[in-house]
Computed example of a mutant assay.
Amino acid sequence: MMGSLPISRRLVFKLRQVGIGTLGSAKSKLLILGCVALIILAVSNRNRDGSSSLIGWTGEVDLSSSPRGRYSIVMNTWKRYDLLKKSISHYASCPLLDSIHIVWSEPDPPSDSLKRYLSHVMRLSSRKDQQVELVFDINKEDSLNNRFKEIKDLKTDAVFSIDDDIIFPCSSVEFAFTVWQSAPDTMVGYVPRMHWVDQKKGNDKYRYGGWWSTWWTGTYSMVLSKAAFFHKKYLKLYTDEMPASIKEYITKNRNCEDIAMSFLVANATSSPPIWVKGKIYEIGSTGISSLGSHGERRTECINKFVDEFGRMPLVPANMKAIDSCNSWFW
């Protein structure tokens, strides 16, 4: 059927119908054929130029040497050295990576053997044209807030916040990075979650929606910082402006620092985050989310933060960014 034809083919079909039906002369047919050839040439040139990502970014401008052309990884870890080694080995090979900052909150500093091993891995895995920097950010206090402490000497604008037990292909990470470049004030990530009004308790009370509610409805209002890009300015904002009561609550309960960051960014922008499709390889088997009553604890966090912020800043969305070059079916 004509309605199912691609745009360029429909245009060619209409031009031929109009030209042949109304003019009918040899000259008009030659004119139409010339137009058809120009259209086909323009379409083929556009396709040959390479794929474009969100909001006009074509990748033709070399930004690799600028702060916005590269990104830094901030990786949270806790006594899972085998997982840390695997993650560092993988991410060190990503082309646009500038540095990896390991958030270290253990009572003992990293051992010399661990440092030597990771340094060796970085040298082997990094691309020949660039050596990725590896930094241990040592913290005296054991708190989940440490993953959002300001990093004074961070060279890049983009921060990719990641846990040590999650691996994404470099191509997926850098697609998400291009999406972030088109919207650098918001959070861009792979793990969406939603808040819902709790009808049983009133319009000013909320409950936490896990993965299944997002999958079922296609709606989300957060992307978790276990795998998300955001601007480095939010590290400073979290460090300097996040209410002390929220930080104390997070330290005490060992949960919800990711929700707090989503609140912070949404409160600053009044905009939703962006969910990016990507393959997630979880190489760990345990974590906070595996504990009992996880959803109830997260619901408590949301309502606590709403009280502290004085409003619900999270903005729902249902947009999902997909790399069309690697997806034959949209």
Rank of each mutant, 00 (worst) to 15 (best):
Y234K: 04
I246C: 09
M319V: 08
L144K: 08
K128S: 12
I246G: 08
S327A: 15
L97G: 07
D82N: 09
S89W: 12
W180S: 07
R193Q: 07
P273E: 08
P110D: 08
V121N: 01
G21E: 13
R127A: 05
S72R: 03
L38Y: 09
R46L: 10
P169N: 09
D62S: 06
E296R: 12
L124K: 02
L84T: 04
L96W: 09
V265A: 07
I166R: 05
K149T: 02
Q181N: 08
K27E: 15
W216D: 03
E150W: 05
I100D: 09
S161K: 06
I88H: 05
D198P: 09
L124M: 03
I246E: 02
S28E: 13
I88W: 05
K279I: 10
Y234C: 07
L38M: 13
S126W: 09
L15Q: 13
K152A: 03
I250S: 14
F175C: 09
H90D: 06
K85R: 08
P184Q: 05
A37C: 08
R193L: 00
I274N: 03
F230L: 11
S44G: 03
L33W: 00
F148T: 11
R123H: 12
D204K: 14
M1C: 10
Q181C: 11
G278R: 11
V159M: 10
Q199G: 10
I288F: 05
A244R: 03
R48D: 11
C170K: 06
I32V: 15
K79F: 01
